[in-house]
Amino acid sequence: MKRSRTLTLTTLMAAGGVSLTACGDNATPTVRIENPGASVDAYAYRTLQECKDRDEVPDAACEAAETAALEDQDKAPRYAAQGACEEVYGAGQCVPRSEANGGGSFWGPLVAGFVVGRMLDGGWGGRGLYRDWRDGGFYTGSGGRVWTDYTTGRTRIGTRGFDPPDAYQPPAKVQSRAGVISRGGFGGNMSSRSYSGSRWGG
């Protein structure tokens, strides 16, 4: 199977009109990075065009974030079975993929959009977002959660959420259902607790 390099709305995002901004605060146990870093304003988008049309961040930042999201897709968690993947990301939110150069096949989650934010050094950072259906939150591939600061109403993310996924997880490998339950579907430092899209892939 060929890996797609184009972006289209997931059925979840298109039909449900789900906001990319997850509710809650940065102190909840659903935060996947134990030390997420200083929080910065976050701007979440489903498509590159939406990012540019909103005119909240420079167009160049939109483009860089989209590129990072496409790269994240190649490093996303991998699952041996569709059901194991959907336990984390929800029904219809996982697609079959295959390794380049005739490698093995696996199931991977759809990227739901991307997040952009200004880093502490003044530059812009961006990564793809995945929606964990168990808590409804949106996370970058490294486990950074997009959240709402209720005192200001602003959307925020810890700066470490902009790190590339492989900064927190080992080289991608196919996960079993047991691995999903024990590791929560994301790599790196996270809670093992069990909880209660632009489609960029195929």
Rank of each mutant, 00 (worst) to 15 (best):
G185W: 06
M119R: 15
G144A: 05
V95M: 02
Q93I: 05
V115G: 06
G136I: 00
L48C: 07
V116D: 00
L12K: 03
G90W: 03
G153M: 09
L110F: 10
F162D: 03
I33S: 09
R54N: 13
C85W: 03
Y139A: 10
G24P: 02
G161S: 11
T11L: 10
R177T: 01
L110G: 01
G103K: 01
Q73L: 12
V95K: 08
D149E: 15
D59C: 00
G184H: 00
T6G: 07
G17D: 06
F186P: 09
D74S: 14
D166I: 12
G128C: 02
F138I: 01
D25C: 12
T8L: 05
E63N: 02
A27N: 13
T159C: 06
R97Q: 15
L7P: 05
K2R: 12
T151P: 04
L20F: 03
G143K: 01
E87N: 08
T10N: 12
G122D: 04
E56C: 09
P164R: 11
T21R: 14
G90A: 10
A100I: 03
A172R: 13
A100S: 09
G158P: 04
A167D: 15
I33F: 11
G144L: 09
S196E: 10
P29V: 13
E63M: 06
G92Q: 10
T148Q: 13
A44Y: 05
T159H: 06
G141L: 03
T159A: 09
T21A: 15
V31L: 01
C62G: 00
A42E: 05
W133T: 08
A76V: 01
T152D: 05
V111D: 03
V57S: 06
D53V: 06
R78F: 00
Y150L: 05
M119H: 08
F106W: 11
P165K: 02
A112Y: 07
G128I: 00
V40H: 11
G117R: 07
T148C: 13
C62F: 11
R5S: 08
G83V: 04
L70W: 03
G108T: 15
A100D: 04
V95E: 12
G103V: 07
G83Q: 08
A60W: 10
R118T: 11
L48P: 10
T47A: 04
S39E: 13
M13R: 04
V88D: 11
S198A: 13
A27S: 14
A172E: 07
K75Y: 13
V40Q: 09
V18R: 06
G185H: 01
C62P: 07
P77H: 08
R199W: 04
G113D: 10
K52A: 00
Y195Q: 11
W133Q: 14
A14L: 14
D59W: 03
Q175H: 12
S182W: 04
Q169E: 12
L7K: 03
P170D: 07
R118I: 10
T67W: 02
R156Q: 14
T67N: 01
A65S: 12
P171R: 11
Y43N: 12
D55F: 04
G161N: 02
V111H: 08
G126K: 08
G158S: 03
G158D: 06
S191F: 03
R46M: 06
V174D: 09
S194V: 08
C94V: 02
W107D: 09
I181K: 05
R3Y: 07
T30G: 05
D59N: 13
